[in-house]
Nucleic acid binder design. Structure first.
Lengths: 138, 138
DNA sequence: TCTAGTTGTAAGCATGATTATTACAACAAG
DNA sequence: CTTGTTGTAATAATCATGCTTACAACTAGA
């Protein structure tokens, strides 16, 4: 099991917007050319990034721009904007409550898995768009 | 996106085997009763745990038993036994190599996401079956 | 006002993963 | 030989993902 490619796609889009700011009009078609995906995928992704307050979109005329500085956009913001991320883990639905293991499995596991979730979030929070831009150049 | 329920199912199975050792014959049907899933799911899961060297299965006669002590079985062993876990993340397939962002996106992201993967693995390695058994009682 | 390019979304489709279920050959113990 | 079990294949239902077509609504400029 893996995450969808939505977060990488969103990051790619944001990096393009930052990189081509002022040089090109970053329309969905233009961006789709760099991504190698359908323009509608770009529009849907941009729509979620807009809802998360990360970008502004010029309706009608076309083009998108960042609403925050690249150093103030974390990968977690991007991730949670495009991915319906509740928990990384899922349980089987109907453990038997009459069995001591079935009764406790959810709570017992959750105690540990929650911290995996938390660490995952913290790590993504510590990666900002600017550091990705920096590595792009090198 | 989430992981499948395979790891929680496998953990549940292993906990039952440890808990009911000597008291009940842990057949796939018996285990399925505690899990609330189909016995075939249990057999397929046990088959993967066996391939990973974690359990022994009595063919024909029925029943499974642990091959390692609960304190020596980590959640990572269980996870990687049942989940085809390469990387947590996936990329879009065809970024444009003529675009500086498209050319670099994979490598630039991978540099950071790899450490998320590593941390994920380390955390699961630090959780053992015995500690889950302990919390079960309380 | 008209035109051209764009966004926002809905709808449909193909594919693959997940889970449940049926079925049955192979096996072991009594 | 019978009974209960494992191992595994096959099927089906459901859902997520990603691609694509289509089209109304919008904006700027001629």
């Amino acid at each position: 099991m893996q995450f969808s490619s939505r977060m990488p796609i969103a990051v790619h889009i944001l990096l393009c917007i930052a990189e081509f700011d002022g040089k090109y009009k970053t329309t969905s078609t233009f961006l789709a050319g760099s991504l190698g995906v359908n323009p509608v995928i770009v529009r849907n992704t941009l729509s979620k990034l807009k809802a998360a307050g990360l970008v502004r979109i010029e309706s009608g005329v076309g083009g998108a721009s960042l609403l925050k500085k690249p150093e103030d956009i974390s990968l977690w913001e991007v991730f949670s904007a495009v991915e319906d991320a509740h928990s990384l883990f899922r349980y089987h639905d109907n453990p038997n409550p009459q069995c001591p293991v079935g009764r406790g499995i959810h709570k017992v596991l959750d105690k540990h898995l929650q911290s995996v979730n938390d660490t995952f979030k913290e790590q993504l929070q510590n990666i900002c768009l600017q550091s990705l831009l920096d590595s792009l150049g090198s």
